[in-house]
């Protein structure tokens, strides 16, 4: 039954304030001060990156001839636009690039998280629910993958994939869609999509283990047996009894995962295996500025700050959610 139908049925009987689990969680979350501050910061950062085309005074690739490394707040005499954060080594507006870069970096982090949690939920649920040889095969594979040091493998795979376009064919509409989100051409968004695939390809492992553990404990719960005795199918039990009750740790894992992906993307780009200049990301801006960092220390600090802020904020939000979703804590 939809929420609207429920509401229409009960319109005349509402006398007592109803508190859904969601409302209870929100009340608890609001008490976590650092998490609330982080939420505000993240909302601001997201808003700025969403509104990038409106806010940015310059185009991403716009070169200002003969104005390399101008200081903060320099005004462009011809058009009156301001280089809030100066320009980089070839005269591109640093602030504009920073917020466009945020759009790309955050998109990669968010979509990688969504994909890896989704894959993790499905594989973990199947593995835990059906057990037996399915569980054995899936979990041994996950454990095997987890023993491999991630960063070197990420480097190898990304250099392989980024150089051989035909290795993984990605459908054109998907590229165009992703390009629209990140304000890139379909061709340029290909690398971003590949990075997402690589990051999510390793990211689902933890989520799958987490989900499997939850399903194993939920499987023994009486309400699952009750559903079975009502004649519910496995699919219904998984989607209605297992997944909603396993969401709390998954949500926490996702928010911590976001922090990890922001850093991982930056690390890949910093080492030169991520998305390449001229497309800006926080990671490759950091990477490009390292040559000049002794003379002009703000150049690495400017893209470093949002990486630091976002990963910190996502971690605090994760902490806040962990506390808020813990059913043992009464409000």
């Amino acid at each position: 039954m939809s929420a609207a139908q429920v509401a229409s049925l009960s319109a005349e009987t509402v006398t007592i304030e109803e508190r859904t689990p969601f409302q209870i969680v929100m009340t608890r979350f609001r008490r976590h001060r650092l998490a609330m501050v982080s939420l505000v910061i993240m909302t601001l950062v997201l808003l700025i990156t969403i509104l990038a085309p409106v806010i940015a005074p310059f185009e991403v690739q716009e070169l200002s001839v003969n104005k390399y490394f101008v200081p903060f707040g320099t005004v462009d005499e011809e058009t009156g636009r301001v280089h809030y954060l100066g320009t980089d080594q070839i005269g591109r507006d640093y602030f504009s690039r920073l917020i466009y870069a945020g759009r790309i970096s955050l998109t990669i982090a968010i979509i990688s998280t969504l994909i890896s949690e989704l894959v993790g939920i499905v594989i973990g649920a199947v593995s835990g629910f059906f057990g037996g040889w399915i569980d054995n095969i899936l979990m041994r594979f996950v454990e095997f993958m987890l023993t491999i040091p991630t960063l070197p493998l990420l480097l190898i795979i990304s250099s392989m994939l980024l150089r051989n376009e035909e290795l993984i064919p990605i459908p054109e509409p998907l590229l165009r869609f992703m390009g629209n989100i990140m304000l890139l051409t379909a061709r340029d968004s290909r690398n971003a999509v590949l990075i997402i695939i690589i990051l999510a390809g390793f990211g689902w492992l933890n989520a799958a283990q987490l989900m499997r553990g939850m399903v194993l404990s939920l499987r023994e719960q009486t309400f699952v047996e009750a559903s079975r005795s009502l004649g519910a199918s496995n699919y219904r039990i998984i989607t209605r009894d297992m997944i909603p009750n396993a969401m709390a740790p998954i949500i926490v894992d996702a928010s911590l995962g976001l922090a990890g992906y922001v850093v991982a993307e930056a690390a890949l780009a910093f080492l030169g295996f991520g998305i390449q200049d001229p497309i800006p990301t926080w990671g490759n801006m950091l990477s490009a500025s390292q040559e000049f960092m002794l003379d002009r220390p703000w150049l690495p600090l400017v893209p470093g700050l949002p990486i630091f802020l976002c990963s910190l904020a996502f971690n605090y939000i994760g902490d806040g959610l962990r506390d808020a979703l813990d059913p043992r804590l009464k409000l």
């Binding site: 689990p21 309400f223 009750a226 909603p244 009750n245 059913p327």
Partner: peptide, 8 residues
């Protein structure tokens, strides 16, 4: 306490 799905 255990026989009802807490999310429904």
């Amino acid at each position: 306490y255990a026989s009802l799905n807490p999310r429904l």
